[in-house]
Amino acid sequence: MLHLVNRSPFEERTIDACLRVAAPGSAVLLYEDGVYAGVRGTGVAGRLEAAAREMRVCVLEEDLAARGLQDAALVPGVHRVDYDGFVELAIEYDSVTTWR
């Protein structure tokens, strides 16, 4: 399953809820304000790094750039994808769920 998280981890707890439930082998895409969770050095970075060892964790490049974070160091194991990559992820995983 592909999990979509669009909320900032400093605003809501959706990334924590998602990581508690997401199964190993699934994928998590951080987009919109969700990209803040992918940046190195925040309070959620440790949990995200642990998750990235068991599942594919990606951040949407366009949304990083829209927030001036295009050159920011990401949490180890987290990958950048663009909208083409977003489409590919939606195809590769048999279902897509959005966390609110």
């Binding site: 669009n6 987009y31 919109e32 304000d33 366009e62 949304d63 909208y83 083409d84 977003f86 489409v87 939606a90």
Partner: peptide
């Protein structure tokens, strides 16, 4: 207040460009 309509728009464009 939110970016949903933009995200969906860019996603739809990318999907259409790939022939979906």
């Amino acid at each position: 207040q939110r970016q949903s309509a933009e995200s969906a728009y860019h996603f739809a464009q990318a999907a259409l460009a790939k022939g979906h």
